[in-house]
Amino acid sequence: MAVDMTQKPILVVKDLNVHYDTGKGPAKAVNDVSFSLRPGERLGLIGESGSGKTTMATALMRLTRAPGRIVSGSVELDGQDLLKLSDKDLREVRLRDIALMPQGAMSSLNPVMRLEEQMIDAIVAHVPNLKRPELDARVQQLLKQVGLEPEVARRYPHELSGGMKQRAAMAIATSLSPKVIVADEPTSALDVVVQRQVMQTLGRLQDGLGAAVVLIGHDMGLIAQFADTVGVMYAGKIVEIGPVRQMIEAPKHPYTKLLVESLPGIEVKQALVGIPGLPPPLVNLPTGCSFNPRCPFAFDRCRSETPQLQEVVPSQFAACHLYPDHKELPPLPARATRELHA
């Protein structure tokens, strides 16, 4: 579905900060993140492990748990700040307006309840007056939508395969036609074939509902295929965000460039390349740009001043001091990527 760019955004995240309290001080897992999402838009968020993706996903639904803590910012869903809602209102908004497709679908279903019980649980929490036959019909319809057989309703989670569990979680997530679906690495535990099927089902359902999707993951290929817009996270910040094609063909942030370069191609056999160095510890971020210790272009300003997102080319934003002095990202120096010897 084409996104109507004239529509008002459905989800607006502003200056979101989530910290984990540790003995050494707060770990800034989500650091001043802002983005917005229009109805029907598919936003992919990519990042390495520990870049704050999952923390961000849980914070969007205010599911953050101790030692995690949402420090500041706002998450406005249809004009309503989720971070300011009462617990009761928040419960009503969850699933009805913003739904989670969990990371570990394998372990996201209650092992001692039949699938239909868990689906009905979710529906009844929001629409309390439905009769059992109506609920059963609804369950059947939802299962059909995600490509599961009707008899699956009577099964327990341990009687389902990984792909079936993920579909079941998807059926629950879409049961009340939410406006926004937060999909946190929904397919990371599945093999590529099932992965593709599940993503296709998600895409089809989302089109039907007109819901916006935040897809979080580390698989650049998968996200590039699914998303309209891609955001790249590094050390708790979005360092670059823009339309998917532009992001892959002409990345503006050095980190995005290195990520794209490190994608292995299947036709040409070449040495695996990675990005030298490791992500910084979130408790003790480098001053200036968090990426400066690993950046091949880093200069003095990068080590002292934190770059803000700026529009480098229309609708593509990057947080990098190379701009606006440069028009394009300069070619990478020869040794910027490193061969990984297996």
């Binding site: 639904m61 599911l63 969850r94 699933l95 969990p102 990371q103 279903l109 649980d121 979710a122 929001h126």
Partner: peptide, 22 residues
């Protein structure tokens, strides 16, 4: 600490229901 508790919260269930049944 299990994922199904987080998912139950995300479903918007009442805490009492999560406490007892999940």
């Amino acid at each position: 600490g299990e994922d199904y508790i987080t998912f139950a919260e995300a479903k918007g269930l009442h805490p009492r229901r999560i406490f007892v049944w999940y």
